[in-house]
C-alpha cells in the first residue's frame, strides 16, 4: 500500500512548551484511521499539521508525496485537495447553503457556477439535505450543519478527508446522523483521518487506531489489536473512562 499521508518524526512547540513529540505514522490510500486520546494530548494539533493549519518545527509530513512543511509548497493548492471537517462546523454564516458549497469550488478550483452548483447539490443530496439548499447555516440544526460541512468538503473532490472531532459539539441525538454519513464515506473507500471520541465508530469503521498522550503517539495499531489485546496503562484508563458512558 502507498501512504497517502505520511508523518515522520513531527515535533511542535508553542514557545517552550512541546505539544507534539516525534510523531510518526501514516494513512494509506483508502484507509480509515481514528486518532483518540485525552484532551490536551495533541491530537487536534496533529491533524491540523497535516494541512498546515498549524505549523510544525521538526520532521516531515507528506500528503500524496507533497511535503507540507516545505516553504516552496503551494499550500492553497495542497489544502484544496484535502477536505477538512471541524468541531464547530465552520459553515460561513453569511452565505446560503448553496453558496457555502460552491464558493471554494469557484474561487479556488475555478469551476463554473453551473458545474459547482451541480456538484454541490449532488453532495447535499447525498447527505440528505437537498431541500435546505436555499437556507442559511443559522437556520439548520447542528447535525444538519455538520452534514453540510461534509458535503462542502466532498464537493472539492478531495484525495483524503480530515475530521477534527466532528461530533463533539453536537447534541447526542444528532451524533448518529453525522456518523452515518462518515461511515458511508469510509465504505466507499475514502482515505480518512478522524480525531474522535466515538469508540463505537472506531470499532465499526476504522482500520487502525492511534492513541495519543501528552504529544506522543503511544499506540498505533490495527483496530482489532487496539480493542482486543492488552495495551499500555494510559490507553486502558482512557478507554475505560470513554466506554463507561
Amino acid at each position: 500500500m502507498t501512504a497517502m499521508i505520511q508523518l515522520s518524526n513531527v515535533s511542535k512547540w508553542y514557545g517552550d512548551f512541546q505539544v507534539l513529540t516525534d510523531c510518526t505514522t501514516q494513512v494509506a490510500k483508502g484507509e480509515v484511521v481514528v486518532v483518540c486520546g485525552p484532551s490536551g494530548s495533541g491530537k487536534s494539533t496533529l491533524i491540523k499539521c497535516v494541512n498546515a493549519l498549524e505549523p510544525f518545527q521538526k520532521g516531515t509530513i507528506l500528503v500524496d508525496g507533497v511535503s507540507v512543511g516545505d516553504p516552496k509548497t503551494d499550500l492553497p493548492k495542497l489544502r484544496s485537495r484535502v477536505g477538512m471537517v471541524f468541531q464547530h462546523f465552520e459553515l460561513f454564516p453569511h452565505l446560503s447553503i448553496t453558496d457555502n458549497l460552491t464558493i471554494a469550488q469557484m474561487k479556488v478550483l475555478g469551476r463554473s457556477r453551473e458545474e459547482a452548483n451541480d456538484k454541490g447539490l449532488k453532495y447535499l443530496d447525498r447527505v440528505g439535505l437537498k431541500a435546505h439548499a436555499a437556507k442559511f447555516p443559522g437556520q439548520l440544526s447542528g447535525g444538519q450543519q455538520q452534514r453540510v460541512a461534509i458535503a462542502r468538503a466532498l464537493a472539492m473532490d478531495p484525495i483524503a478527508m480530515l475530521f477534527d472531532e466532528p461530533t463533539s459539539a453536537l447534541d447526542p441525538e444528532m451524533i448518529n446522523e453525522v456518523l452515518d454519513v462518515m461511515t458511508g464515506l469510509a465504505h466507499e473507500g475514502m482515505t480518512m483521518m478522524c480525531v474522535t471520541h466515538e469508540m463505537g465508530f472506531a470499532r465499526r469503521v476504522a482500520d487502525r487506531v492511534i492513541f495519543m498522550d501528552r504529544g506522543h503517539i503511544v499506540e498505533d495499531c490495527a483496530k482489532e489489536e487496539f480493542f482486543g489485546a492488552p495495551r499500555g496503562e494510559r490507553a486502558q484508563q482512557f478507554l475505560s473512562k470513554i466506554l463507561q458512558h
Partner: peptide, 23 residues
C-alpha cells in the same frame, strides 16, 4: 470572528486575500 472561520477557509484552499474577501 471565531478562529475556526479562517481555518475552515484556509482548509478549503483559499489564499489570504480570498479569506478576507469572502469570509
Amino acid at each position: 470572528l471565531p478562529k475556526g472561520q479562517s481555518n475552515a477557509a484556509y482548509a478549503m484552499g483559499f489564499t489570504l486575500p480570498q479569506v478576507y474577501r469572502h469570509v
